[in-house]
Every structure is written in C-alpha cells, then in structure tokens.
C-alpha cells in the first residue's frame, strides 16, 4: 500500500504549507528573531562559539519544535474530535499508516525548514561552517526533534481542539525559553540553568551547539532525549487505547 502512504503524506504536506499558523510560528518568527538578535548583539562569542552560528542553531531548533508540537497536536485532536479518524478507520488504509504518514510528512517539512534556515545563515549572515558541520548539525536537529513530535502526539489526545491549541503554544514557548533557545543559558540565573539540564529543549539545542564547539556527542543529552521520546510515546499510546475501547 505504498500508493496510499505517498498520497497521505502529500496531502499532509499540502495542508501544512497552506497553514498560516505554520508559516508564522515556524518560519517568520525564527527568522525575525534571528535577524534581530544577531544584529543587536553583534560579534560576540558564546562558550567559544560564534554567536551568529550558535543562534542559527537555536532558532532552527525553535522553528522545528514549534512546527512539530503545534501541527501534530492540533491535527490529531481535530481529526479525532471531528470524526475524520472514524472515517479513515473504515477505509483499507492500515491503522499505523495514518499516524506514520503524519510523522513522515512532518519530517519532510522539518527538513525543508532546516535547509531554509541554514541557507539564510550562510548567505545573509555569512556563516561559514565545514560541510561536515552543516550536515551533522542538520541531521541532529532533524532526528533529535523526535521527542517533540511524540509530545505533539500526546497533546493531540486532548478532546478539545481549542485547549490543545493553547496548551501546545504554552508548552513550546516555555520549553524554548527555559531551554535556552531564545537566550543562552549563561545569561540566566543558576537555578534556571540547573533546571534546564533536564529539559529536552536544552538537550536538543546543546547537541547542535556542541558540534559547533567541536565537542563530541553528549551521551547524557542523548539519553535524556530518548527517555522523553519513549515516555511521550508510551503515554499517548496508552491514552488512545483507553479512548478507543468501546
């Protein structure tokens, strides 16, 4: 059933690109922030890394987190409450394909966002990384966003679309701020820095910043991200099973 899977992904991507919320929160806002804060702060260094490159990773991460949490949560909640899922269930589309196609299409969108942000950083701000660094950073952000997709799926189990929309916004904004994606952790009080160590958003950004700083992979960070992904997936599967049991 490759044909239905491809069609399903194509439809999902079209719907995302046509969504003004996605364009504003995942493309316009990160790009704006990037230009504002690289212009006002100028040529400083954060932890030995050039600020313009550091902040490019922060804003790219911010953009894909926003798109993944918002798009997936709202779409799952909407389609479940408005009966669409029931209609899909009586078609031959296999159960898993519906969820899988949403995750895959979000990945395609995220990849597009990453390439777009990197092109802006390179051509508008003259960021000069080696090809290896670009690819490693890009792959890290592309794959490392998985826990946030799982979080979007979990938020999508709420039964009210309005609640989901507000909750998704609060969650992704606070995760981004507290995880040091808006402003580096070093500008925050000690207690906030300690808390951030346990947040997926900080660990997500840290992976990319480490590449820029020439530091090897941080296994604690990877373990924390994997744990979050696992917990969110188990929780949402459990909740969905309970909701479907009639």
């Amino acid at each position: 059933m490759m044909k239905s899977m491809i069609a399903q992904c194509k439809a999902e991507i079209l719907r995302t690109v046509r969504n003004r919320r996605f364009i504003v929160f995942s493309i316009v806002m990160p790009v704006m922030f990037y230009f504002i804060f690289t212009s006002t702060l100028g040529d400083i260094k954060v932890g030995g890394v050039d600020w313009k490159a550091y902040y490019l990773m922060s804003m790219t991460a911010f953009g894909v987190i926003g798109a993944s949490i918002n798009t997936l949560s709202v779409r799952f909640a909407q389609e479940r409450t408005q009966g669409w899922v029931r209609l899909i269930r009586i078609t031959p589309l296999p159960n898993g394909s519906y969820v899988l196609s949403k995750i895959l299409s979000q990945s395609v969108i995220n990849l597009g966002t990453i390439v777009f942000m990197f092109l802006i950083g390179h051509f508008a701000k003259g960021i000069d990384l080696t090809l290896g660094e670009w690819i490693t950073c890009g792959l890290w952000i592309w794959i490392g966003v998985l826990p946030f997709m799982a979080l979007g799926t979990l938020l999508g189990t709420f039964k009210s679309v309005e609640v989901v929309q507000v909750a998704a916004n609060i969650v992704y904004m606070s995760l981004s701020v507290l995880g040091g994606l808006w402003m580096p952790l070093t500008t925050m009080p000690k207690i906030m820095q300690d808390i951030a160590q346990y947040l997926p958003s900080y660990r997500f950004g840290q992976g990319a910043w480490n590449v820029l700083g020439g530091v090897g992979p941080d296994w604690t960070g990877i373990a924390i991200l994997a744990a979050y992904a696992l917990i969110f997936m188990i929780l949402s599967t459990y909740i969905l099973k309970r909701q479907e049991a009639v």
């Binding site: 044909k3 239905s4 491809i6 069609a7 399903q8 439809a11 079209l14 719907r15 046509r18 969504n19 909407q78 389609e79 408005q82 009966g83 669409w84 029931r86 209609l87 009586i90 078609t91 031959p92 589309l93």
Partner: peptide, 25 residues
Amino acid sequence: AMLQDISVIDRLTVRETMDLFRSYY
C-alpha cells in the same frame, strides 16, 4: 459509508480529498 457527524478535512480541495480517498483502494 456515509457516517453522521464527520467534518470535511481542512486545507484540501474537493478534488484533493477525493484523490486521497481513491488512493486507499
């Protein structure tokens, strides 16, 4: 089946929605 209380899918045209369903069969 035509079920009750099913809304249409957003941000897809009539034609795209029909093609999506055609792809399932």
